[in-house]
């Protein structure tokens, strides 16, 4: 299968500070690939290496079959990029900005651009300095999509977008997938990535932890459940409940971490008088700790010895 992005031992240090270390990654043509990790994991560093904005300390990266440090202009002609910390030209209007970028590229269909503006509800006649963060983000997205590139490299694309616009963005990604284009999305939001992506790479502290099919992720999805009982139940009632990774009981309240199906937990709870029940998506840190942490469940120290990354 054709590979759109390949990195081989890609490593970036900022002086002595770690960016990414020994990253081996393959993104296939036509897939929506999530690049997931907490803040400071090295996502932006990786994406900026692919765009040749910064240079590897060691290792290599290939995009659309070309070396990123040698054929960057050709790569960029076929790629759309949304930077993570988006800065736009404050003194231009949205339209001036989009026209300028359309002129830097060939073959931008102005009709398609206008359709994108309508769909994302962006008003290009406004001066950029007067726009909210979310509205700037829309211009950034339009700029990335406007030339229908073969590859989209999007750094935390939904940050600042309201939920309605996030859905519209999901549809844009879906259309790109249907047209056989490839989308590489960085995010620190697991549920969002699960919704959009075919495969996900987990990155932590600069190292690749694992690449998984999203379908397989769902089977081992985590939930954090908080239960308030009407009367304190006897201790240890969850000890033999399948799927419960951890349970902390404190009087009437219990905090439980569940993996996969919630069925067994609910059947156990049914035996006691429940006053209130809340279920949360776990934070990315919790997911990491649970899947890859040394001691299993969360509430372990911030830094964790890198396990999965020692592959370079």
């Amino acid at each position: 299968m054709e590979k759109v992005i390949v990195t081989e031992g890609l490593t970036k240090y900022y002086g002595k500070a770690r960016g990414v270390v020994g990253l081996d990654l393959e993104v296939r043509k036509g897939e929506v690939f999530g690049f997931l990790g907490p803040n400071g994991a090295g996502k932006t560093t990786t994406l900026r290496l692919l765009l040749d904005l910064i240079r590897p300390s060691s290792g290599k990266a290939f995009v659309l079959g070309m070396d990123t440090t040698r054929h960057s202009v050709k790569i960029r002609a076929r790629t759309g990029y949304l930077p993570g910390e988006l800065s736009l030209y404050d003194r231009m209007t949205g339209e001036e900005f989009l026209r300028f970028f359309a002129r830097l590229r060939d073959g931008v269909d102005w009709g398609y651009m206008e359709a994108l503006c309508r769909r994302l509800e962006a008003d290009p006649s406004l001066r950029i300095s007067s726009l909210s963060r979310g509205n700037k983000q829309k211009l950034g997205l339009i700029q990335a999509f406007m030339h229908r590139p073969e590859l989209l490299i999007l750094d935390e694309p939904t940050s600042g977008l309201d939920p309605l616009m996030q859905q519209e963005f999901h549809r844009l990604v879906e259309e790109a997938r249907e047209e056989g284009r490839t989308v590489f999305i960085s995010s620190h939001n697991l549920p969002e990535v699960e919704k959009m992506c075919d495969r996900v790479a987990f990155i932590r502290a600069g190292r690749l932890v694992e690449v998984v099919e999203v379908a397989s992720l769902k089977e081992r999805s985590l939930h954090r459940v908080e239960v308030v009982f009407a009367a304190p139940p006897p201790p240890g009632i969850f000890q033999s409940t399948p799927g419960v990774l951890r349970a902390d009981q404190d009087g009437q309240t219990a905090r439980i971490l569940v993996q996969g199906s919630m069925d067994s937990l609910l059947k156990t709870l049914a035996l006691y008088p429940v006053h209130r029940l809340v279920s949360h998506e776990p934070s990315l840190e919790e997911v990491f700790m649970t899947y890859y942490g040394v001691n299993g469940p969360p509430d372990i120290p911030e830094t964790l010895p890198d396990r999965g990354g020692d592959r370079s």
Partner: peptide
């Protein structure tokens, strides 16, 4: 101003 990232993501050497 942080706009170099975007400018250099366009196909210009």
């Amino acid at each position: 101003r942080g706009t170099m990232d975007l400018l250099l993501s366009a196909p210009i050497s």
